[in-house]
Simulated scan of single mutants.
Amino acid sequence: MHSTSLHSNFNNPTQFVEGWYWALPSKELKVSKVKAVTLLGRNLAIYRGVSGEVVVVDAYCPHMGAHLAEGKVEGDGIRCFFHNWKYDSHGICVDVPSFGKPLPVCIKTWHTVEKYGMIWVWVGEEKPNLLPFVPELEQVDCDYILGTRFVKNCHPNVLLINAIDAHHFNTVHNLPLEIVFDSQTINSNAITFSNTTRGGDDSWLIRLIRPLYRKEVTYSMCYWYGSTGTVTLGPDFLHFYIIFALRSLEGGKTEGQTILVTPKRPGFWGWVLNRGLLCLTQQVGNYFAKGDTQVFQTIRFDLKTPTKADQSILQFIQHVNHQKALSWGTWHTVNYLNIQTPIGQEKNGFKI
Rank of each mutant, 00 (worst) to 15 (best):
C80F: 05
D141F: 05
S188D: 15
P176E: 06
K108G: 01
F316Y: 15
Y219N: 09
L177N: 05
L273K: 15
T254Q: 05
L146G: 01
S32L: 13
L160F: 08
I206S: 01
K324T: 15
N153Y: 05
E136C: 01
G117K: 08
T262S: 13
F10A: 09
F296I: 12
N195F: 00
F350W: 14
V261K: 06
L303R: 12
G329L: 11
K27F: 06
V121D: 00
L159W: 15
D292T: 02
P97C: 06
S5E: 08
S89C: 09
W224L: 03
S8L: 04
G270D: 06
A309W: 05
F181A: 10
G256E: 08
V57E: 00
L29H: 08
K35D: 03
Q311R: 14
G251H: 01
F296G: 05
P263N: 04
N286W: 11
L40W: 07
V17Q: 03
K27T: 13
E178W: 08
G234H: 12
L40P: 03
G285V: 06
S227G: 08
G117R: 09
S194D: 03
L24K: 10
Y144K: 10
D88Q: 04
F288W: 13
S8Y: 03
P13V: 07
L238E: 15
A166G: 11
T305M: 10
K35F: 03
V151F: 03
I164Q: 07
S183L: 02
V320T: 15
S183V: 00
K253L: 06
L137H: 07
N12P: 08
A66Y: 11
N189R: 12
V320C: 15
G251T: 04
V272F: 13
K290W: 14
G200N: 09
T109F: 11
S248P: 00
H155G: 05
R300N: 14
G226N: 03
Q340D: 09
E346V: 10
Y336Q: 10
V56Q: 00
T230D: 04
V172S: 02
I243W: 00
V94F: 05
F169P: 06
C61W: 11
V172R: 01
F82W: 11
F10N: 05
L280E: 05
T4K: 13
V272P: 00
R265S: 12
I179R: 15
Q139F: 09
F133H: 14
Y87D: 00
F237K: 15
A36R: 12
I46F: 01
P266A: 13
H167A: 13
T112E: 09
E74Y: 04
Q340Y: 05
G226D: 01
I186K: 04
S51E: 09
